[in-house]
Design a binder for these strands. Sequence first.
DNA 1: CTGAATCCCTGCCGATACTG
DNA 2: CAGTATCGGCAGGGATTCAG
Lengths: 122, 122
Amino acid sequence: MTHRTVGHPAGLPDDPRASVTAPTPECPVEITLAALHGRWTTLVVRELLRGDRSYSELRAALPMLSDKVLSDRLAQLGKAGVVARDRRPGWPPRVRYALTSSGHRLGPVLQALWDWGAEVST
Amino acid sequence: MTHRTVGHPAGLPDDPRASVTAPTPECPVEITLAALHGRWTTLVVRELLRGDRSYSELRAALPMLSDKVLSDRLAQLGKAGVVARDRRPGWPPRVRYALTSSGHRLGPVLQALWDWGAEVST
DNA sequence: CTGAATCCCTGCCGATACTG
DNA sequence: CAGTATCGGCAGGGATTCAG
């Protein structure tokens, strides 16, 4: 565990953004939650944590996920800098989705989310 | 950091729930995201990480937060086992909200969310 | 002081159909 | 194969009002 500054009992950052009094897109916590926001998002990330995938492979891995939501999620994760698209030339179209370096750094974040949820559910 | 099993490159848990193919309330990640779900939720938790608060103190600390959403959030966090209500006898009614032990354990979770968002926003 | 009830509006997401 | 277009149902959340 990291060092804890007196006056920040829970290890909250000593950063002006830690004092905002309303939800704002500049808050780092909001940035992360926005990247992970929405149904299916964490499952898509989990799938990509296991390796790069094509669109069809993602659909096959998550059969109940509709085309619309999958492309929504991939666009959202792309804009958030989590996922990169690799379009290869030729026919039929072949596109690979892979996590960026930022995307890989979501691993510990998901781990933290998992750990808390696992402990409270026991 | 915890030990990483081969075949789980990102440190994903070796747990059957890590293989679900659809969003489910039993998934620990979903449990945590459900607890933190919704606008204002993390700000309420942050406020309580600094110490217990009354209803009015929370309203004063988060002036743009409406009564409806505040009581929604306190109920949500109560059901999630994050926040405990302490109602004291007498008049006028005095109620204190405080984090449970589970609630305090959200500190590292918010820290992880903060760290990722802070790094990608640089 | 501490909330709950209501109203309404917006945005999410699921299903279906269609395109390069 | 890899998506986009469109529509409809439903839940989230803001403002206001009322209650214990």
